[in-house]
Measured scan of single mutants.
Amino acid sequence: MSIQHFRVALIPFFAAFCLPVFAHPETLVKVKDAEDQLGARVGYIELDLNSGKILESFRPEERFPMMSTFKVLLCGAVLSRVDAGQEQLGRRIHYSQNDLVEYSPVTEKHLTDGMTVRELCSAAITMSDNTAANLLLTTIGGPKELTAFLHNMGDHVTRLDRWEPELNEAIPNDERDTTMPAAMATTLRKLLTGELLTLASRQQLIDWMEADKVAGPLLRSALPAGWFIADKSGAGERGSRGIIAALGPDGKPSRIVVIYTTGSQATMDERNRQIAEIGASLIKHW
């Protein structure tokens, strides 16, 4: 067993022997301040990774656009098919120029040779490549099948209805392509620590998230040296922004954090800054 596999296998073990965790309302004060600064709703939840206990939450059962955070769930569904012998990570998928959609920095470079399922998941999570996500959605049967996968996990809230990039439209009061912070946090925890996926697939999923290259201005910008984070960000229309993450000190994750916002007129930089400040408060009061 590799060191990384050992780390993920012992996530519940280490967490069980940690000192009790206590909620700190100071972080919620910052979440509410972010709402004021952005002029928009902000949803927040913080779960203990081992027990699933909610440590703090704000608007945990209000719907927010998922945006690209759905790509972690998508690759979880792909990995479940791999575990069941219905898919192979090494299978190569070929596609054409007509398949390319807006923001496809990886797939646009491989029109000639195609990409493997493993490479597509890596591109979808680490670079948020939209064509990679659409190609992977095709392998599982489309958005409705991802929703069905989530329902089978016990998540009857999260739903995907459309493809990239239309799913980022974020129309107010439109339930399409949305989740709730509580539902997303619980589902992410199941994917990373539950028995739904094999140990190898859980490790692969967290490795992809740990290698995320496009979430630097968010929670990662607030992390002290030595902290662990595996995350996936999302951005959408109407001032929408979000991030889902597993993080913790001492090089291992111990909490799940989900943050979503929508309806702001603020710039992307300002949305990023507010999420980073929430992260800084979380870490300060850990």
Rank of each mutant, 00 (worst) to 15 (best):
A16R: 04
V214A: 08
G234W: 00
K213L: 13
R255S: 03
R220H: 04
A225Q: 15
A225N: 15
V82R: 07
V8Q: 13
G142Y: 02
Q37D: 15
L282E: 04
F228L: 06
G242R: 00
T193F: 11
E145I: 10
F13R: 02
E195Q: 13
T267K: 12
M268K: 06
L219D: 04
S104D: 02
N152G: 14
S128W: 00
G141C: 05
R118Q: 13
R81Q: 10
A280V: 14
I275R: 00
A124H: 00
T131C: 08
I275K: 00
T179P: 00
P172K: 10
K109D: 12
L192I: 15
R238S: 11
H24R: 13
V21L: 07
P25C: 09
K32E: 10
G251W: 07
G114P: 03
E166C: 11
A211H: 14
A185N: 01
Q4T: 09
D177N: 04
H94T: 14
T147N: 11
D207Q: 13
K53Y: 13
G76A: 14
K144M: 12
L111K: 08
L55E: 08
V72A: 08
D129Y: 00
A222V: 13
T186Y: 13
G194L: 09
A245G: 09
T187R: 01
L205A: 03
A185Q: 01
T27P: 06
D174Q: 06
L192R: 01
C121G: 05
H285C: 11
V117Q: 03
K190Q: 12
K190A: 13
K32H: 12
E169H: 11
A34L: 08
A235E: 03
S104N: 05
G90R: 10
E237K: 13
T27W: 02
C75V: 13
D129A: 00
I244R: 00
I140N: 04
D174Y: 03
L223W: 03
P224F: 03
T198A: 11
G85V: 06
I206Q: 12
H285V: 09
T138D: 12
I244V: 13
F22R: 10
T138K: 15
Q265N: 09
I206M: 14
T179A: 03
Q88P: 05
P143F: 03
S122Y: 14
K144L: 13
S128V: 00
M66T: 06
A148E: 14
D48K: 04
V21M: 05
F149N: 06
H151G: 13
N130D: 05
H24A: 15
E145S: 12
M153A: 13
F228D: 03
T112Y: 15
P25V: 11
A84D: 11
K190I: 09
A133S: 10
A123Y: 04
T138A: 15
A230T: 02
A23Y: 04
L135P: 00
A9N: 09
D33Q: 15
N173G: 14
E56G: 13
V258Y: 01
L89E: 06
A182P: 06
I45R: 03
F17W: 10
S57I: 07
T131K: 02
L247F: 05
P172C: 10
K109L: 13
A276C: 11
D212Y: 03
F13N: 03
L79D: 01
G248V: 01
I275C: 05
L19F: 15
R91M: 06
K232L: 00
P20L: 03
I125R: 00
G242Q: 02
Q37V: 15
